[in-house]
Amino acid sequence: MNKYAIIETGGEQLRVEPGRFYDIRHFASLKPEFLSSNTKILIYRVLLIRNETTVSIGQPWLKNAIVKGRILHSHIENKITVYKMNSKKKTRRKFGHRQNSTRFVVDFISLDGKNL
């Protein structure tokens, strides 16, 4: 918990720690057909890095900061059901959506070429 980074990927910001896995809706630079397991990824959009007592903040991103990881697998999340109904007009519409998701694990957080 002393070492973590805040990254921006898939339209959201995540707090990541080395050795943990996270689910992301999509990676902006990778297409779904290239998301096979054990594909190494580098994330350069690092907003903040905390290493024990020192905190480095980027404006907007840190230079020379990389989060290194690998993709575990791609999967589809649970179905979300959307039900629309107009009571006076007697119209109903029901449909669902399943979001594609990718699970990746963070191996290293590096700043200025040194692994934290």
Rank of each mutant, 00 (worst) to 15 (best):
I49Q: 00
R50Q: 15
V46H: 09
A65Q: 01
E77A: 15
R70V: 05
T53M: 09
I66M: 07
T53L: 10
E52H: 14
V46S: 10
Q59G: 02
R70M: 09
I66Q: 08
E52Q: 15
I76A: 15
V55Q: 06
L62W: 02
W61C: 14
K68Y: 11
L47F: 12
G69T: 06
L62D: 02
R70F: 11
K68F: 11
R70P: 01
S74P: 03
S56H: 10
K68M: 10
V67H: 07
Q59T: 06
T54V: 14
H75N: 07
T54Y: 02
L47W: 12
I76E: 13
L47R: 15
E77I: 10
V55D: 03
I71N: 00
E52L: 12
T54I: 10
H75C: 11
G69D: 04
R70A: 10
R50G: 00
G58A: 11
E52M: 09
I71R: 02
L72R: 05
P60V: 06
W61S: 15
Q59K: 08
R50A: 10
N51L: 01
R50C: 12
Y44T: 11
I43P: 02
L48C: 09
L47H: 11
R70E: 12
L72T: 05
H75W: 10
R50N: 08
V46M: 11
I49V: 09
P60D: 05
L48Q: 09
N51E: 03
Q59D: 02
V55G: 04
P60T: 07
P60H: 08
